[in-house]
Design a protein around this nucleic acid. Structure first.
Lengths: 356, 356
DNA sequence: GTTAGCACTCGAAGGCTTAGAGTGCTAAAC
DNA sequence: GTTTAGCACTCTAAGCCTTCGAGTGCTAAC
């Protein structure tokens, strides 16, 4: 792939910028006028022609203006987009909102999704922070009736999982409380693996309970996160390129399904090292979903690798203001990282010592 | 409002049925043929004309077929629709899915939303069961760092709420555990009101904690439910009457916002006594949202009034298979009621006695 | 009261024309 | 050799017209 001249880069940049702005094919004269280019429309036409030749632009039909190809966007995002930060007052507004919100992880996630959707005009997704390995901090057993017991697990990091389990034998709350106290002490700061080993040495009831706990912990390790917070799904529908087709509908449908998000987020885990945080998938590249052919996704992880991380991202049309979106995602990723590390770090580094 | 003749009722019924099926204005001849009516198209035409006169049908333009008006749907749902039950095998399939699902309230809600959306081809919403009055069953305090404490409340009924709070003074986990034990005993089976009264008689730390607990309980009483489970949002978009306009987009946007759901669900609480369970809002009647002008909502409460209840419903286009939708909603409402009462009833009737 | 027959209405669909936006090419200017 | 003015050419979008046919409402016969 040959190098573009500076002028070609400029023209590609403004062409993409203009197309993103207007959603209509851009013409040579338009660009010259609107961006005060120091050349004639004929020159621009020649360059546009060259860029089309190289596959960065295309024409809907012979005598129409140009619009970016997938490759064009990719070149733009990868090589032309200069880092821009979110305006100071926007950053302050957002921080302020988080500051005001209840000190509740769920609340943060909801807010993050909402801000992300609002700022990016796309559909946002945010997962709750998830420990690299589920480590137990606290355990409660609450009898509901007969053999049914509510199992509440509090993880290091503050995540809480509850589950209604059915035991083989009926037990009283007293027995449960005793077992809970015992297991609590044993399990403190352990993960699924070490618990499994313990199971065989325990009396029947406690062994059974242990199995349930292990299952739950494994489940937590396996799933990317318990809950995924979505917002702004309908923003995507408002985009002009989706009106009249139901491509957007199918893309949104995909977001509603867990399976896609699972794969998408798993992918992020793998390639985190690649960039300095924010990852851009253009035209659903790498994914196996045709529905995303016309969409792009901007993703980032947040949190502290090895301790606890989550993912947040935006799904929008390929014709997306990448600069803006990337800054928002980056900023929120940083903000959530701070929030998470503030609440988790200390706890995680000195966890296995003390007993509650 | 004069009474319709039997024949008019029949014709209105089949006209609505046909319109729901095809989404196109229905003509007199079509009805005669498809439903083997024992009369000529001219007769049907006369009756259609009469029904139009009465406001139950309308014509998009002079020489077009008929389609139901809002009033038409209302008459149909209120007086013509005979109760139909879900086919036996469908019922079994659904029950089976619930039987297989993890014994977890969240899981049930998710499944209910999914089934509802799938069966009704509309957007579904389900709220978690919510005690009439939030009553505390269990309480945990977990130190995270310095003044920050994770407060975990387990309610009678199994709902779990967690919140990160910041105390005025730094405390150790030992102090917290002691306080937790003490408060646990005191709070057992109490609601927000009775706790508030206790607050002043407690030492500083415990008083402060009590305030947080009270705030949280009040919050639970105030909001309809912590979480609302949505599914099938995009089903609505697929309906032909919404293609090309963004009315559906705005309706879905409304579902994404909590505020509308709050009002909608609050409304249900009020009018529950009216019908034997399932409530149908046609054309967004009673709501103040223009966005719903073209939509209908089928709602039902589930659970045991006075103990714990939740709401579930379907939002779809006004051109909706009401019979089918109502049966699905009714069936699921019954199913969830059973599940909820199985897990909560005993617990709620003898709650305040024992101490865990 | 019901129905056959028929004139009438109106929108959807297709074909045709036109306007204009935009290109590519050529030849002149720099 | 690069840039640019000029111009012929292309192609769509929009408007207009016509046609087609589905469907009605009315009237008169049954």
């Amino acid at each position: 792939m040959e190098e573009l001249s500076e002028r070609q880069k400029l023209i590609l940049s403004v062409a993409i910028h203009e197309y993103v702005r207007t959603a209509a094919p851009v013409s040579s004269m338009h660009l010259v006028e609107r961006y005060h280019l120091d050349m004639s429309s004929a020159t621009v036409r020649n360059e546009l022609s060259a860029l089309t030749e190289m596959g960065y632009l295309r024409q809907p039909h012979t005598s129409a203006g140009r619009l970016p190809t997938e490759e064009g966007y990719r070149y733009f995002v990868g090589r032309l987009l200069q880092e821009t930060n979110l305006p100071d007052n926007t950053r302050r507004t957002i921080s302020h909102q988080f500051y005001q919100s209840r000190n509740d992880v769920d609340q943060w996630m909801r807010l993050a999704a909402s801000v992300l959707a609002y700022q990016s005009h796309g559909a946002s997704l945010v997962t709750a922070p998830h420990p690299a390995r589920a480590v137990l901090k606290h355990l409660e057993l609450i009898s509901t009736r007969g053999k049914q017991v509510l199992l509440v697990l509090v993880m290091v990091g503050g995540e809480v999982r509850q589950r209604l389990i059915t035991l083989t034998e009926s037990v009283t709350q007293e027995q449960l409380s005793a077992s809970a106290d015992h297991l609590k002490r044993l399990f403190q700061g352990q993960d699924a693996g070490s618990l499994q080993a313990l199971s065989s040495q325990l009396p029947a009831l406690e062994a059974e309970l242990t199995d349930w706990v292990v299952e739950e912990l494994n489940d937590m390790d396996a799933t990317v996160s318990g809950e995924i917070f979505l917002d702004g799904l309908t923003n995507v529908l408002a985009e002009p390129e989706f009106s009249g087709s139901d491509d957007a509908r199918r893309a949104i449908r995909l977001l509603e399904e867990r399976s896609m998000l699972q794969e998408l987020l798993a992918r992020t885990v793998l390639s985190t090292n690649a960039m300095n945080g924010v990852q851009v998938l253009i035209g659903g590249e790498g994914t196996s979903w045709d529905e995303l052919r016309q969409c792009s996704i901007v993703l980032a992880r947040y949190g502290t690798p090895g301790l606890a991380t989550g993912t947040l991202g935006v799904l929008g049309p390929m014709r997306m203001p990448y600069g803006r979106t990337i800054s928002v995602v980056r900023f929120l990723s940083g903000l959530l990282s701070d929030l998470v590390s503030e609440t988790m770090e200390e706890e995680l580094t000195n966890n296995s010592g003390e007993v509650n």
